[in-house]
Design a protein around this nucleic acid. Sequence first.
DNA 1: TAGATGTTTCAGAAAAAACTGAAACGACTG
DNA 2: CAGTCGTTTCAGTTTTTTCTGAAACATCTA
Lengths: 184, 184
Amino acid sequence: MLSDLRQEFILHFGEMGSRWGINRTVGQIYAALFLSEEPLCADDLVGLLGVSRSNVSMSLKELQSWNLVHLKHRPGDRRDFFTTPDDMWQIVRTLVEERKKREIDPTLTKLRQLEMRPGSAEDAYAQARITEMRELIELLTGWYDQMNALETERLVALLNMGAKLQKLAQSARILPKRTNKTES
Amino acid sequence: MLSDLRQEFILHFGEMGSRWGINRTVGQIYAALFLSEEPLCADDLVGLLGVSRSNVSMSLKELQSWNLVHLKHRPGDRRDFFTTPDDMWQIVRTLVEERKKREIDPTLTKLRQLEMRPGSAEDAYAQARITEMRELIELLTGWYDQMNALETERLVALLNMGAKLQKLAQSARILPKRTNKTES
DNA sequence: TAGATGTTTCAGAAAAAACTGAAACGACTG
DNA sequence: CAGTCGTTTCAGTTTTTTCTGAAACATCTA
């Protein structure tokens, strides 16, 4: 039912998932869908992975809440079939987007909130540190948003331009203006 | 002993850690060190966080294995004191580096290994998919390596150039001869 | 060497997370 | 309506992970 090759891939992503705070079954299901040319239904996955029907159901729900799988239907078939997007880049974008929404955004909110607290003297250092962290996160997410706005083709072109960008960075430092610390 | 502000920050990172496959105590310890102007020793952390001495010891060991904390010593004091780097950028670099080492590299190895398997016909699609994934990961890590090679100051300059880069990406698509091979 | 101080280890306890089977549910179909 | 097909829910079980206390270890000091 499942070639060694696919089996191994699926097990690998099950294991990897754990290190990313994703549970094993969820990782395995995603991997199975990723490798499958045809959409799969819940019972297919039960057969492929040997886990319970309810586990598959919960895991698929989880994946849907992350927007990582798409629902497909076949004419004359009531079952739900699932796929991953064909475009790997779309997968990456979704992954980052969701992760950002669930982890970065709440953290930024918390940091801003702590920054604004009227600070007693003993917290001066801590607050400075928090500000530093917030600014860094904002710089990185701002950058990500810019890159994410590019079409994939252009983004790839840019990623392939590492050396040229280094040059650009070099000149950017030399160019005099823009000494201000914050802009927003 | 611990102001509300710091308390909240520490709890937040304890929770966040869980979502990243980092256990709560480890997250809390790191957060506490991050906010502390002075280096802290294990017993300080026991007092601050209210966890067992051995838990602190294990967690610090974990953090050390990730190169996320530095050891300091005081003259005439046998205890180990710990700090986080002052430079947030260094922290980010280390974090990415270690994560790459533990998660990306083994995955790339596995993908390459699966790609090379003499493939039966039924695995043709799966292998193509795997190749696609490997290539994307290589592109991203290659890019990261380039960026990581920059001095922080230049890197920041580059990150602040989002709009300009978009322009560059635009022209980049027009100039070079197409790397065909596109699918989808 | 004995004692003081500090760190690490580890078997088992406690807590958390993942998983299951059975039952409830919902939506069509004849 | 009763029956079929498929999905979802959830209480309880299993598995995994985290955490603890006690003992072992290590290093320095008198």
